[in-house]
Write a protein that binds this DNA or RNA. Structure first.
Lengths: 149, 149
DNA sequence: TTAGATGCAAATAGTTTGCATTTGT
DNA sequence: ACAAATGCAAACTATTTGCATCTAA
């Protein structure tokens, strides 16, 4: 790979001592194209489309690594088997999940900076990110009774 | 079933129009015994131990229902396939996950009441719970380099 | 140069399904 | 009484593994 300017995420990969491989870069690109909110299945398809020579296993291995580095976070949005991987651009992400229709509503401000600091001091941990999920009913589902499926 | 006093969670089930079946009650009990933090596999074992006549499918169906009712929330703690189901006693739960060793550290105060209110007003949603996860390194892993596996 | 990462395809395991039967209300 | 929920076991499908090969540094 040439000496280009690395995106912050790739920089982070390298800084942690990992190689900047074609497979990892492609997975990262696919995630970004997807708006940073993709199920593993969607991601596999997207990667396949970008470069069909990349194997499934490498996609999962990359996801696993990215998760450990807090570049990404898997969550269970609908009760499907497949986790949704959420990009955490600045180490954090927040959304509301409608437990009725699985719609996801994102929002920005969480005001958790202070709490982060407190916890680091109090518990002696090093926090690199967080995910805040609210559950409830979206404006559409709010008035309908809870129903099976 | 006799006319006992129902636990708040069971009350909630019934109020939502679902039957209080033996399978559902057992799954709820198993979750509570497990400290409200179990993988689906651990839960299956626990339910099996409590009453081996209950089928796997019913356990998954119960989990699915409980999730929709925000009694429980699936989260992705270690990179295992199996989600961890977290009981949300008062509709919410908070923890720190060590991205190195998968240790989970729970904490109480999150101070999100105000934000909940703001979001409900601003977005016209009805929020029934939330999950706040921090990621980072626990005090033990903090000083070791990030490593594969 | 060489440890680390990959791709492949087979193996694994978690979850869902269809349906006849049972159960809660 | 009867819709709703169950148990069973088969079917599915996402994810992982082992290993020879390749590649980023």
């Amino acid at each position: 790979m040439s000496e280009e300017i690395l995106s912050p995420r790739m920089q982070r990969l390298r800084d942690a001592g990992y190689k900047l491989t074609h497979a990892r870069i492609t997975v990262l690109n696919a995630l970004e194209r997807g708006g940073g909110h993709m199920t593993s299945t969607e991601l596999l398809d997207q990667v396949e489309a970008l470069d069909s020579s990349i194997g499934r296993a490498s996609v999962f291995r990359a996801l696993d690594l990215f998760t450990r580095l807090s570049l990404v976070r898997p969550t269970y949005i609908d009760s499907s088997v497949t986790p949704t991987y959420v990009l955490m651009p600045d180490g954090h992400h927040h959304h509301i999940i409608c437990t009725q229709c699985s719609r996801v509503i994102e929002f920005e401000d969480c005001g958790l900076g202070a709490l982060t600091h407190t916890l680091e001091e109090r518990l002696g941990v090093r926090l690199t990110g967080h995910l805040l999920e609210f559950y409830g009913l979206c404006s559409t589902c709010k008035d309908q009774p809870v129903r099976e499926e």
